[in-house]
C-alpha cells in the first residue's frame, strides 16, 4: 500500500520509457558486438541468415502475444496451436498450396476465437481458458496423427515447401513474412483505432468501458489474432521442415511470453511495442546461438540463460515503474 503512494514524475516516466524501450535494444547491440568479436563464426552471413530464420517463427507468434499481453491477458495455447498448425498444413498440402496454408489459419484462428469469446463473455481468467485450449490443441493433434505415430510429409516439389525454404539473397521467406507482420503489427497497434482499444483495455478496463471502448470485442480479436498467427508460424515451420512434426512447440508459449516481456511490454497490460518484441526475439536467439557456438556448453544452459535474463528484465521493470 505504501508503494502505491508515489506517482511517477514526468522525468522519471521519460527515463523509464527510454530504459524499457531501449533497454532490450542496448542489450541486443552489446550481445551482438561481443559475440561478433569473440566468436568469429557468429558474424558469418550464413550464421546470421540462420539466426534470422530461427527467430522468424517465434517472432510471428510473439507478435500476436504482444497484443494479448497489452490487453492484460495471456495466451498459453500458442505452443500447442503452433504444432497443430504445422500438422494441419502438412496434411493439407496434399490438396495443394491454398489448403495447406488456409487450413491451419482457419482452425487455429477458430481456437483463438473460442479463447477470446470465453474470456470476454464469461469473464473467465485467460490463464485458465488458454491452458485448457493448450491441452485441447495438443490432444487434437495427437488424434489426427494417431498418437503422434503418423508424421505427414510435404512433397518436396510442392509449392508450399517453397514458402518455408525459398530465399531472397539467401534469406528465407519466413524472415520476410515475420518482418512484414511486425511492421503491420506495429502500425495496427499505434495507428489504428483497434490498437488504441487494445491499449485502453489493458491499461484500465473499467475506464475503457466508460470511454466507450468495445472491450469484449477487442479481447476476442486479439485472441483470434494470436491463434491465427500461431497457426501461421506452425505452417511456415512445416513448410520449412517439409513435414508436420508433432513434438514441436512444447513450452514455446513461455518463450513467446518471455520475449514479449523482455521487449518491454508490461505483463500487467496497457503498455508495449511490437518493435520491443522483435528485439526480444533477437536477444533470445542470439543467446541461444552463442551457446551453440561455445559447443562444450550443454544446450540446456539456453533455458538457464534466458531464464536469468527474463528475471532481470522483470525486476528492472518493477523497479523502474516505482
Amino acid at each position: 500500500m505504501t508503494a502505491t503512494l508515489t506517482k511517477a514524475t514526468p522525468t522519471m516516466a521519460a527515463r523509464t520509457k527510454v530504459l524499457q524501450r531501449q533497454g532490450a535494444a542496448v542489450a541486443l547491440v552489446l550481445m551482438v558486438a561481443v559475440s561478433w568479436l569473440v566468436f568469429p563464426r557468429f558474424g558469418s552471413l550464413d550464421n546470421l541468415r540462420d539466426l534470422a530464420l530461427q527467430g522468424s517463427f517465434l517472432a510471428v507468434i510473439a507478435i500476436g502475444m504482444t497484443f494479448v499481453i497489452i490487453t492484460g491477458g495471456i495466451d498459453l495455447s500458442v505452443g500447442s496451436v503452433y504444432a497443430l498448425g504445422g500438422v494441419l498444413a502438412a496434411w493439407g498440402s496434399q490438396y495443394g498450396f491454398l489448403v495447406a496454408l488456409a487450413l491451419p489459419l482457419v482452425v487455429c484462428g477458430l481456437i483463438g476465437l473460442i479463447n477470446g469469446l470465453l474470456i470476454a463473455r464469461t469473464n473467465m481468467a485467460p490463464f485458465i481458458v488458454t491452458l485448457a485450449s493448450l491441452l485441447f490443441a495438443r490432444g487434437l493433434l495427437l488424434v489426427i496423427t494417431d498418437e503422434g505415430a503418423n508424421t505427414y510429409q510435404i512433397p518436396a516439389d510442392s509449392a508450399f515447401v517453397e514458402l518455408g525454404r525459398g530465399t531472397v539473397f539467401g534469406f528465407g521467406y519466413p524472415i520476410f513474412v515475420a518482418a512484414v507482420l511486425a511492421v503491420l503489427g506495429g502500425m495496427v497497434l499505434n495507428r489504428t483505432n483497434f490498437g488504441q482499444n487494445v491499449f485502453a483495455t489493458g491499461g484500465a478496463e473499467q475506464s475503457a468501458v466508460l470511454l466507450g471502448v468495445p472491450v469484449a470485442k477487442t479481447k476476442v480479436l486479439v485472441y483470434t489474432m494470436s491463434g491465427t498467427l500461431a497457426g501461421l508460424a506452425g505452417a511456415l515451420t512445416a513448410a520449412y521442415l517439409q513435414s508436420g512434426v508433432t513434438v514441436i512447440g512444447v513450452g514455446l508459449e513461455l518463450d513467446a511470453i518471455a520475449v514479449v516481456v523482455i521487449g518491454g511490454t508490461l505483463l500487467t497490460g496497457g503498455m508495449g511495442t511490437v518493435l520491443g518484441t522483435v528485439i526480444g526475439v533477437g536477444l533470445i536467439k542470439v543467446i541461444q546461438n552463442v551457446i551453440n557456438q561455445i559447443g562444450t556448453l550443454d544446450s540446456n544452459y539456453q533455458s538457464v540463460v534466458s531464464g536469468v535474463f527474463l528475471l532481470i528484465v522483470v525486476v528492472l521493470q518493477r523497479i523502474l515503474r516505482r
Binding site: 495507428r191 489504428t192 488504441q196
Partner: peptide, 24 residues
C-alpha cells in the same frame, strides 16, 4: 481515463484524426 496512454490518445480515443490512408 487510461493513465498509461498519452494525454492526446485519451483525449481522442475513439475519434482520432486520420490521414488519407485511414491511419491515425
Amino acid at each position: 481515463l487510461v493513465p498509461l496512454m498519452s494525454v492526446s490518445a485519451n483525449l481522442f480515443l475513439g475519434r482520432e484524426p486520420r490521414n488519407r490512408f485511414g491511419l491515425i
